[in-house]
């Protein structure tokens, strides 16, 4: 096991190098010269030269790349171009709200989706099943934007049941006042595709021989569903869950933008608007690292829930 983990971590090195190369090509080559943006209205040859020197843009490209590699290795991405804050402190203050929002959406959404999916899979072919599938198909076709715009308008502005937007410094206040509406909308947006996917996982398992054997030996239906089928259907469910974990760090970008939640997603959007390259680069590196770690974790969890899986 340990040897496996060490090997997998070692394999992340070239991938991380590739991500760095991609970002470098994008922002230092395709992106053009950012000093014109930074100089703003005080455009003078000296100002431009000064900015270039400050950012290291007057150095040859290989040397610039080495600086970037050093930044990644020390996880010190310099200062934000727009606010002059150190990028690390900026991101440090953004990660909390994102984790709170996306974590609660993921938790509530998964529990609800698994419950409903198991129920309709058990009742497959019935009117309930067909109705749920139909509603889910229609619900999936509506853009996430529409849910958020409509929810914010009717539930917060017209209904007045929730604050329209905002975020506070106290976690309790956030949980009680500011979180519920984004949480609700996030769960609604994610629920339909999850139900459809989990239902197909459950239905596939229900057709297997071991289910028939369990019925033949007289087990009750709840025991079959919860003990036998659920455990076997967990593998695709865990995969899709682990795949969505990196998004946990990035937060629900649209929700954060609409509700003014100071998280990573909103930060990305603002950084793109302001051409704040260091922030985008830093967030991308962090998310890529998280994705690779979660992929490794997924494989280890496979091993734990399914003894048949061989790690190699």
């Amino acid at each position: 096991m340990l040897a496996y983990i060490v090997r997998r971590v070692w394999q992340m090195v070239p991938t991380l190098f590739g991500v760095m190369l991609l970002l470098f090509v994008l922002f230092n080559w395709v992106g053009g010269d950012p000093s014109y943006i930074l100089a703003g209205k005080n455009l003078s040859a000296e100002a431009l030269a000064g900015i270039r020197q400050q950012l290291g843009l007057d150095l040859p490209l290989p040397q610039q790349f080495l600086i970037f590699v050093k930044q990644v290795l020390t996880l010190d991405f310099g200062t934000s171009w727009s606010t002059q804050q150190p990028v690390s402190t900026l991101l440090h203050s953004r990660i909390g709200p994102s984790l709170l929002l996306t974590g609660s959406i993921l938790l509530l959404g998964t529990v609800l989706a698994i419950g409903i999916a198991a129920l309709v899979a058990y009742l497959r072919g019935s009117l309930t099943d067909r109705l749920v599938t139909l509603i889910a198909t229609c619900a999936m076709s509506v853009s996430a934007l529409v849910y958020i715009i409509a929810g914010q308008y009717w539930l917060a502005f017209k209904g007045g049941w929730f604050p329209i937007m905002g975020w506070s410094d106290s976690t309790l206040d956030n949980l009680l006042h500011y979180l519920p509406l984004p949480l609700l909308l996030g769960v609604i947006v994610g629920l339909a595709p999850d139900i459809r996917f989990y239902r197909s996982c459950f239905v596939e398992e229900l057709g297997h021989d071991y289910v028939r054997t369990a019925r033949a030996k007289g087990l009750s239906e709840p025991v079959i569903m919860l003990k036998h089928v659920l455990r076997n259907a967990m593998i695709p469910v865990v995969t899709s869950l682990m795949m969505s974990l990196p998004y946990l760090m990035m937060g629900a970008m649209l929700l954060e933008t609409f509700f003014g939640i100071p998280g990573m997603g909103k930060e990305v959007v603002m950084a793109v608007e302001r051409s704040d390259f260091p922030v985008i680069k830093a967030i991308t590196i962090y998310i890529a690292l998280a994705t690779m770690l979660f992929n490794l974790l997924t494989d280890i969890i496979y091993k734990l829930i399914d003894p048949r899986v061989q790690l190699h």
């Binding site: 985008i280 991308t284 890529a288 994705t291």
Partner: peptide, 11 residues
């Protein structure tokens, strides 16, 4: 694949 679609799109 190690960078989520939406983030890559924005970058």
């Amino acid at each position: 694949t190690s960078v989520p679609d939406m983030l890559l799109l924005l970058a």
